[in-house]
């Protein structure tokens, strides 16, 4: 209604103006911003954004390289797949040579390997752990149970596939998969991250 600027700050015009098709539309708020020299923070913001984007473009490959070569999975086990998980990081298969080190806190992790059967009762805890992990983060469904419920697919207590709860990047088949298969899944995830498809 009232477009006069008394306080010197931009005001947001909330009413709907009847438009004249012949008259070019200039938002009141923009005009007032220019009048009250509020373009200075706008320019500042634009410049900061450009610098930010430039820095991002320069550092993204570095972070990508660092991140994909030091995937830290959460150290938790649900079922028999966890035995293979443990073997995969033992002396024989030694997953740490790929920079994959299981960590005990979700705050330090960027990879969630769901290795086992997830029941409906556990689903809340799984989602909590997933949300506690900082971005960027990835998830691997290891074994048939996590992938699609496995032999318990129609059971009353089992989640038919962990992708009902969290977004999954890589599925590993097997009941349970061998440690080689798990490491292959992790390497596939590394390739996906390199190509930024995950």
């Amino acid at each position: 209604m009232n477009a006069t600027n008394t306080s010197g700050t931009a005001r947001i015009i909330t009413h709907v103006k009847e438009t004249d098709p012949m008259e070019p539309e200039v938002p009141f708020a923009e005009v007032e911003a220019v009048q009250s020299k509020e373009y200075i923070p706008v320019i500042k913001e634009t410049l900061t954004g450009m610098i930010q984007r430039g820095l991002d473009a320069a550092t993204k490959p570095v972070f990508n390289w660092a991140g994909r070569n030091s995937l830290f999975p959460l150290h938790w086990g649900l079922a028999c797949c966890a035995i293979e998980f443990a073997a995969g990081f033992g002396a024989r298969w030694d997953g740490e040579r790929f920079g994959v080190v299981p960590r005990s806190s979700p705050r330090q992790c960027d990879l969630l390997i769901v290795n086992g059967t997830v029941t409906w009762k556990l689903s809340h805890k799984l989602i909590t752990l997933w949300e506690q992990m900082p971005e960027p983060k990835w998830a691997i469904a290891m074994g048939n149970c996590a992938t699609g419920g496995g032999p318990f697919r129609t059971a009353y207590s089992v989640v038919p596939g962990v992708n009902k709860l969290i977004p999954v990047d890589v599925y590993i088949a097997g009941c349970p998969p061998r440690p080689e298969a798990m490491l292959d899944g992790i390497l596939r995830l590394e390739r996906l991250i390199r190509e930024r498809r995950a």
């Binding site: 129609t154 009353y156 989640v159 596939g161």
Partner: peptide, 17 residues
């Protein structure tokens, strides 16, 4: 549900979910 009741039917996974 009370799953051990005879009236409980094994649902399709999506429906149960």
């Amino acid at each position: 549900f009370h799953p051990l009741r005879k009236s409980f039917e094994l649902h399709e996974p999506e429906e149960l979910e």
